[in-house]
Design a protein around this nucleic acid. Structure first.
Length: 326
DNA sequence: AAGACGAAAGTGGTTGA
DNA sequence: TCAACAACTTTCGTCTT
């Protein structure tokens, strides 16, 4: 093992959320996100790097002997937000053997047994820890059900910690707050999920989720731009088993629609659905309005209305196979 | 018979007084 | 706090493939 990291790097104060909520000086009230792979604080709004002397969770780079160069590592696993105690605790193994592998004496065994019991109790000692432990397990459950990738979970966990500090969870259900942070995290990372989809995976109804989400935005001063219909395309297309040419055409349609102002004030989900519908007809991989409406979680009527507008304003022949200009 | 269409009334969120 | 409003949904009868 390499040297133990210089302890100066591990001062408690540099550990993000436990301190205060950070605001970006550039775009005044944006979300500041920790980028643990590069050890930076980055503004989620404008991309400004705010500080760069963070903990490096990567491997050690110096080596003073041959063994060291074989295993350049720092001690311990990287810090993670989805683990409620950030993964810093010691774990007493369940096996009744000591470090050399010998069986323990009966008295020693019962002693270890007691230690283990107390360790389990102390890990969820304070109410804050209990809350976090519950929230993180719910986050884990919900995001694996929805297939949310790890980095987005981490962001959601970070948001949850911030909302606890701001006392937003008080009087609200943990589940609702978790779902809201996850929804927000997806949107921040430009991988939005329909609100209904998140609500379905959770035991929270859509209305509560929406309320928590809006509270989150206001209280944490996060600015999340309107979701872009294009961000939904790849997921919807794969759910509908549409080829990549259809996806490309869909994106083109959406871009052109936006250029002529067809998209303002419209539900991004409806736009995405309609564009997919048009593209699927154009490239002869037709899907029914109903199928598309279902994955996009809008009604057929909405698909219809949007698609009518698109066809009319973009001058696409109603028969469908007529290509657009370029 | 399934899909597409469109009218009409209902719903939840936003805005501005 | 309330009313007006735009977008979306629900529902349903009719037309098209």
């Amino acid at each position: 093992m390499g040297r133990t990291g210089s302890t100066d790097d591990r001062k408690e104060g540099t550990l993000d959320v436990s301190t205060e909520i950070v605001k970006c000086p550039e775009c005044k009230s944006a979300l500041v996100v920790e980028d643990s792979t590069r050890g930076e604080r980055v503004c989620g709004g404008c991309g400004l790097v705010l500080s760069d002397h963070r903990i490096d969770t990567g491997a050690e780079w110096r080596a003073f002997s041959s063994e060291e160069s074989d295993s350049r590592s720092r001690v311990g696993a990287p810090l993670r937000y989805t683990v409620h105690d950030k993964g810093l605790s010691t774990i007493i193994d369940w096996r009744d053997r000591d470090t050399s592998g010998k069986k323990l004496s009966p008295t020693r065994r019962s002693e270890i047994y007691r230690l283990r019991k107390w360790q389990i109790r102390s890990r969820v000692h304070s109410s804050l820890d209990r809350n976090l432990a519950q929230a993180m397990s719910e986050l884990e459950r919900l995001s694996s059900q929805l297939g949310i990738p790890e980095p987005i979970r981490e962001l959601a966990a970070l948001l949850y910690r911030k909302s606890i500090i701001k006392k937003l969870v008080r009087g609200r259900s943990i589940e609702a707050m978790v779902a809201a942070t996850l929804y927000a995290a997806c949107r921040i990372r430009l991988k939005p999920r329909p609100l209904d989809e998140v609500a379905d995976g959770s035991r929270i109804d859509r209305k509560k989720l929406g309320q928590c989400y809006r509270l989150l935005l206001r209280s944490l001063d996060i600015k999340i731009p309107l979701s872009n219909p294009i961000d939904y395309i790849s997921r919807f297309a794969s759910q509908l088993e549409l080829s990549s040419p259809v996806q490309l055409r869909t994106v083109e349609i959406l871009q052109q629609s936006r250029d002529i102002g067809l998209t303002i004030g419209r539900d991004p989900l409806g736009l995405a659905a309609a564009a997919i519908y048009v593209a699927s007809i154009m490239l002869d991989e037709r899907r029914t309005q109903r199928e598309i409406a279902e994955v996009a979680r809008v009604t057929e009527v909405t698909v219809r209305n949007r698609y009518k507008e698109i066809v009319k304003k973009l001058g696409i022949d109603s028969l469908g196979l007529e290509p657009m200009d370029f």
